[in-house]
């Protein structure tokens, strides 16, 4: 049980990222948890600071706490020992709050708790954990969806915590992916329901599904950096190139110098190097268009074996 969380324990029970959550609001995207113990409390609270200005984006980190504020959503205090306090604007859409809470806020908590949080989607291919990283729009979610379509199971889409000791393992998130309408039309997933993301800047919908999700951790087998290109092929990213690719695709990379003070930058580099020591990184060149996704799946099944 986490310390530093006085008061009644909220009773919406969920599990995500290997953490048993107790929240004071419903997160319809999450799997329910039936255990009596918990790791993290999520609750609304006054944070003792003014609500952020409309255009404000703030990230602050100490060893045990982080503060994240988005002017359009609200603000969040993240305590390493297992407490997330939030305060949102009155008209904040619950889907957006879910995206932030289960995205950047969770990634921050996971990183503070000693895991390496990657910005990636991941698939369980017959017990092997395969990771897809890449820039915005590189096709992480679309690629993940085509693997689910092919009968493999999703581990996560967006935040991927990796437990490094004793050997790297991928920790599952929850059964949801973000897909463009175009991708959703071509990759029909049985039993899935979609909800448009209200903020138009996303141009994507949230796709929740009932089968095709793996709640089990799996050993990390392969890391791919997705890149558009004419030929379907994988090329090794070795040594410093692999390290650079990995570090660029961590969740903390987005925070820049606000996160990377001396000690945290050194720890973060060591975590990435530890992952590289046992898992190979490859650049996966993917031809454009959704027509060749079956080919991509077959290629990765073989390449990651």
């Amino acid at each position: 049980m986490p310390a530093g969380a006085p008061g009644a324990v909220p009773d919406h029970r969920y599990i995500a990222y290997g953490l048993r959550l107790r929240a004071d609001r419903i997160f319809p995207e999450l799997e329910q948890d039936f255990s009596d113990t918990y790791d993290v409390i999520i609750r609304r609270a006054g944070l003792g600071r003014p609500m952020p200005e409309p255009a404000q984006i703030t990230y602050e980190f100490t060893a045990t706490q982080a503060y994240i504020a988005f002017g359009t959503v609200g603000h969040f205090a993240i305590h390493r020992d297992g407490l997330i306090e939030y305060e949102t604007l009155p008209d904040t859409d619950s889907g957006i709050l879910g995206l932030v809470m289960l995205g950047v806020v969770s990634a921050t908590l996971l990183q503070m708790r000693g895991q390496l949080a990657l910005h990636a989607s991941a698939i369980d291919i017959a017990g092997r954990g395969v990771v897809f990283m890449g820039n915005k729009g590189a096709g992480k979610s679309t690629t993940a969806a085509s693997f689910i379509r092919a009968g493999h199971r999703l581990l996560t889409d967006d935040v991927l915590p990796i437990q490094l000791e004793p050997a790297p393992r991928l920790i599952p998130g929850f059964a949801q992916i973000k897909l463009s309408a175009e991708a959703m039309d071509s990759i029909a997933l049985p039993g899935a329901t979609s909800t448009p993301i209200p903020d138009l800047t996303f141009h994507k919908s949230l796709l929740r599904f009932t089968t095709g999700f793996s709640g089990q951790t799996v050993p990390a087998a392969r890391l791919y950096v997705l890149q558009a290109g004419p030929t379907l092929q994988a090329t090794p990213l070795e040594g410093a190139a692999g390290l650079a690719a990995l570090m660029a695709n961590t969740y903390m990379a987005r925070f820049g110098s606000q996160f990377f003070n001396n000690a945290r930058a050194a720890d973060h580099m060591r975590q990435c190097a530890a992952l590289l020591a046992s898992v190979k990184v490859r650049c996966l060149e993917v031809p454009p268009g959704l027509g060749r996704l079956a080919e991509l799946v077959a290629f990765v099944e073989q390449d990651s074996a």
Binding site: E238, G239, A240, G242, L243, N262, A265, A266, M269, R270, C272, A273, A274, L276, A277
Partner: peptide, 15 residues
């Protein structure tokens, strides 16, 4: 700061 890599080593000038 130093981290070992399969190819050698990475260094970070923290300052």
């Amino acid at each position: 700061a130093m981290a070992r890599l399969p190819s050698g080593m990475a260094l970070l000038n923290m300052e």
